[in-house]
Simulated assay, not measured.
Amino acid sequence: MKNHPQFPLVIALILAACDSTPSTGGQGGHGGHGGQGGSGPDVPSPHASGGGNSDGGGGNGDTSPPPGTLSERYPDDVGIAGDPGVLFHDDFEQGWGRWDGPAADTRTLRIEADEATAHAGQGYLRSSVTTADLAEETYISSSTWVTHERADAIYWRFHVRFPELAPNPHHWVRMAAGAEGWDASGLANTVPPGDEGFWFDFDTNTDDVFNFYVYWYKMRSGRCNDGTATPGCAGDQGTTYHYGNGFQPPGQAPFPRDRWFCVEMHARANTVGQSDGALAFWIDGVPIGDYRPGHPDGTWLRDQFHAGGCDFSACTPPAPFGGFDFRSSGDVRFKKFALDAYYERDSDARRRAEMEERGMTVSDARTILYDDVVVATERVGCRR
């Protein structure tokens, strides 16, 4: 599904950059799914519901839905699929059929029924990629995806469980926006046209913390310290490349292994001509990442935004984040969501070696369980 012929070059570039920019994890070349977005109504920041600090902290296990969310109105998600604000829902109780693909179990992805394992009910989705699988294939995309009604501002909610200690995916969950018919597949190391589309991934690294990995038409290059691609610039890496720009909130607690936890995300496309787009995420109802006009203070260095600033010699003083100018056309609107555990053989081996150097006993199966997925135009909240 994704092809990464430039990956060795990417690794060399990343290693060359390590002396001045910290890794945010999971940052190699990678293709895209299709997508869409638009200028939606102003929405509250994550701080408006849920408590906690967007600059750190992890899930606290309390998944009580905050006031005014869909989960509060539909306890235990009963009837939630019928709400006019819900664009997609799957609790995996009815088998395949709600996603655009796949339509049946695959080698790495299957729907199972086990009340003792599921987050709620009996059904859940299992993604499992083994060391043997990666010995046969360099790239594996264990993915299910859906194209939904296009919208300018979107909320996503799903529950997830990592039952084994194993390397996390090279890239993980994908949200995409685009004009009708536009597909970003295979466009790694490409700046997407502002009137066609943009996309971002929600990734996790070896430290079990999360980051956004974003492609848009005003994204920064990793070549120069100032994010440009001008030969001879300060910090010149010698090669122009445009892989996803990284946003990793500092101070995160690692996500819990072998228990269900709740992931919520929000994205708002910008008003055309303005930089008022936003990204945010919550873990177990606690706000962790919150990127919007004027928040947080931070420092850009090459293709990474460091909330709170950074300590390298090339770092400039922190300044308020300027927001996202994701698109140049109102026809670019959110339209696609994918649970995509994407593994690349070499990066997986490096992650495994790093874990073993820390004294961890690493499983040969990279398993992720999913349940209770909702895509909506208002905040969903966690299912109790």
Rank of each mutant, 00 (worst) to 15 (best):
K2F: 14
V263I: 14
T230Q: 14
P192H: 08
S128V: 15
E196A: 15
A307T: 15
D346I: 14
N270T: 11
A12I: 00
V191N: 02
T147W: 07
R351F: 08
A177K: 07
P287L: 00
A153G: 12
G29F: 06
T130C: 03
Q27F: 02
E137A: 14
A17R: 12
D372C: 12
H47D: 12
W182R: 10
A353R: 02
I283D: 00
N211F: 10
G35A: 03
R259M: 07
A353G: 02
V263T: 10
P102G: 09
R333V: 12
S49H: 09
T138S: 13
G381L: 06
R161S: 05
G31E: 05
T147R: 11
D290R: 07
G97I: 08
A319Y: 04
M360D: 12
V286F: 00
R107I: 07
D290M: 08
P163G: 09
D183G: 12
G58E: 00
V332E: 01
P84M: 02
G181E: 07
T361N: 15
Y213T: 13
Y342T: 06
D201R: 13
N225M: 08
C18M: 04
D208K: 14
V43F: 04
M265A: 13
L187I: 11
N245P: 02
P163R: 05
P67N: 03
G52K: 01
C224D: 06
A253L: 02
G121M: 11
G25N: 04
I283R: 00
V362T: 05
P75C: 04
I80L: 15
R358S: 11
F210P: 11
R384C: 07
A104K: 10
I11P: 00
I80D: 02
G197A: 14
K2I: 14
G35M: 03
Y213S: 14
I140F: 09
F158W: 11
N53A: 09
S71F: 03
P293E: 06
D91Y: 01
T377Y: 02
N211H: 15
T190K: 03
G61I: 01
H4L: 15
C262F: 06
E344P: 02
A179C: 01
M219H: 00
H266V: 01
G95P: 13
D90P: 05
D226H: 15
H266T: 05
T117Y: 00
S49E: 05
K336D: 12
G227T: 10
F158A: 08
F321E: 01
E164I: 09
R292K: 13
A234C: 07
F210N: 11
S39F: 07
R73M: 10
G235V: 03
A118N: 06
F202S: 12
R383P: 04
D284I: 04
C310E: 05
A48Y: 03
L279G: 01
C382A: 05
T63M: 09
D331H: 10
A135E: 15
R107T: 10
A132T: 09
A184F: 14
P22M: 02
L15C: 04
H295V: 13
P8Y: 02
L9H: 01
H30E: 05
G35K: 01
V214H: 10
R384Q: 15
L125G: 09
L369Q: 02
G58P: 03
K336H: 13
A188D: 15
H47V: 03
A229M: 07
E344G: 07
A12M: 05
E264T: 04
V129G: 04
P254H: 07
H30P: 00
P296Y: 09
A234T: 14
G31V: 06
D208Q: 15
T106K: 01
T138E: 15
D90Q: 04
